[in-house]
Design a protein around this nucleic acid. Structure first.
Length: 435
RNA sequence: GCGGGCGUAGCUCAGUUGGUUAGAGCGCUGGCUUGUGGAGCCGGAGGUCGUGGGUUCAAGACCCAUCGCUCGCCCCA
């Protein structure tokens, strides 16, 4: 029985062309995060199971993560998300870190579930968090940052939308405006979260089922729909418009408008699945019909650092997954032509191995990445191979070149070739690399 | 964990109501000769038709099982 060449279920191999794209993508993410003053951090890919049990409950940890026992019987989890690790690290040096603390990371994460479009078992996720800012300026900054990320990939505002909501507002709406109990509000929040997946009649039926008969008679469903149908804050029922969370949302929307971010709107159906969010939540949604899903999600979670027994630190953060981002880039035709890491492909003609070695060494010494072709091939084969590997230039070394110390540099795209000194070749190649 | 779709060459696929030695395009490879490629022409390699069982004189095709991929549900960190 032959060994399978397939990668593990739900995980990907990164062949050089895939890795090259990933490097491009991550490079942009790092560049933008750092432009906003964020510092990169990392943590171990393995964490104690306790870190997730405290936050998520045992069910999701046992069923949706990779859990195993190490040789000393410790229960270990392959990290399914970065937020707990980041909170752990911040709590660990709570006193000595200066605030606001701006951190980002691009961890490789694993979740145990059936793979589907945009959602694999293995993925990478940009995590950006700002710690120590209790005010709305933190949310403003993070949404500006996400907007800058999409811009850096060449996306226009028409391609995606930023949607905002407030957990505080929804809690108030469910408890005080609709009068739901704790349990009902929880179920209703989950239902609202998947409202866009089901049709309206079905939604109304399911919402009805959550409510008690008296609440139903009091018109709770109608009141709920009035909340959920609001396209702007002013559409909300008067009792809610006056709430402090609406003031905060309005302030956030105003700031973003001032920052020229136009594709942002209030959306009361944005709930975010997990419970640690405490206030404003947001998502970035791809508007392409074939990828109509959330690419990025985040919000404020002021309580997490405090779980480690230190004073709480107000925090806002978001995660952006590589799989949906890649889908976005491909579907909107934003994929750039990516170049090889090699600047030149070196082709020898005749028995010039010793002399060519010297030229190669000099080129490398001067900072040029040189891939050397196999000896004894025809020039045409060298060209084809270099082209296939997306290498832009071929340097030809033969008897003539060695005698004159002028080397043939061929541009595979223009097909032009000319003789140059090695330093000249270095400068041409580096100019191209920088272009 | 649940449901739908699909597994034929490296890739994309075609294979007529079951009928002899399994096909195309692209890709790969050799040549059209030895210092300038992408075209064209002529060759070549490569498939126990995902796997195992069954029905049949006969299975790539039909049935069962199993594995894998994929899309969706649950869940979404």
């Amino acid at each position: 029985m032959a060994l399978s060449t397939q990668p593990y279920k739900g995980a990907r191999d990164f062949y050089p062309e895939d890795k090259r794209f990933q490097k491009y993508m991550f490079g942009k993410l790092r560049q933008v995060a750092e432009r906003f003053g964020y510092e990169e951090y990392d943590a171990p890919i393995l964490e104690s199971i306790d870190l997730y049990l405290a936050k998520s409950g045992s069910e999701i940890v046992n069923e949706q993560t990779y859990v195993f026992k190490d040789r000393a019987d410790r229960e270990v989890v392959i990290r399914p998300e970065m937020t707990p690790s980041a909170s752990r690290m911040v709590a660990g040096r709570r006193q000595e870190l200066g605030y606001p603390l701006r951190w980002y990371s691009i961890p490789n994460l694993w979740r145990y579930e059936r793979p589907q479009r945009g959602r694999l078992r293995e993925h990478w996720q940009l995590n950006v968090d700002v710690f120590g800012l209790p005010g709305i300026e933190a949310e403003v900054e993070l949404i500006q940052l996400s907007s800058a990320i999409f811009k850096s990939f060449g996306a226009t505002p028409a391609m995606y939308e930023i949607r905002l909501n407030s957990r505080k507002l929804m809690d108030f709406a469910l408890h005080n405006y609709l009068g739901l109990t704790e349990v009902e509000a929880y179920s209703m929040a989950k239902l609202i979260d998947r409202m866009h997946k089901i049709d309206r009649t079905e939604f109304i039926g399911l919402a009805d089922a959550v409510l008690s008969p008296s609440e139903r008679e009091a018109g709770a469903v109608e009141k709920l729909l009035k909340v959920l149908d609001a396209r702007r804050l002013s559409d909300l029922p008067a009792l809610l418009v006056a709430h402090e969370s609406v003031v905060a949302l309005q302030k956030l929307l105003d700031s973003l408008t001032t920052s020229q971010i136009s594709n942002v709107r209030f959306d009361p159906t944005i709930m975010r699945g997990f419970d640690y969010y405490t206030d404003i939540v947001f998502e970035v949604v791809d508007l392409h019909p074939d990828n109509n899903r959330s690419m990025m999600g985040g919000g404020r979670y002021d309580g997490l650092v405090g779980l480690f027994g230190v004073d709480p630190v107000p925090t806002v953060g978001f995660g952006l997954g590589d799989v949906t981002l890649q889908n976005f880039i491909e579907l909107h035709d934003l994929l750039p032509k990516l170049r090889s890491e090699s600047d030149v492909y070196l082709a020898t003609i005749g028995d010039v191995a010793a002399g060519a070695q010297l030229a190669v060494a000099q080129l490398r010494e001067m900072g040029v990445n040189v891939a050397v072709g196999a000896t004894g091939r025809k020039l045409a084969d060298h060209f084809k191979l270099a082209e296939k590997k997306h290498i832009h230039y071929v340097v030809i070394v033969g008897e003539q070149e060695l005698a004159s110390e002028q080397y043939t540099l061929k541009n595979l795209q223009t097909t032009e070739s000319a003789l140059h000194s090695l330093p000249r070749i270095v400068s041409i190649v580096k100019d191209y690399r920088a272009s």
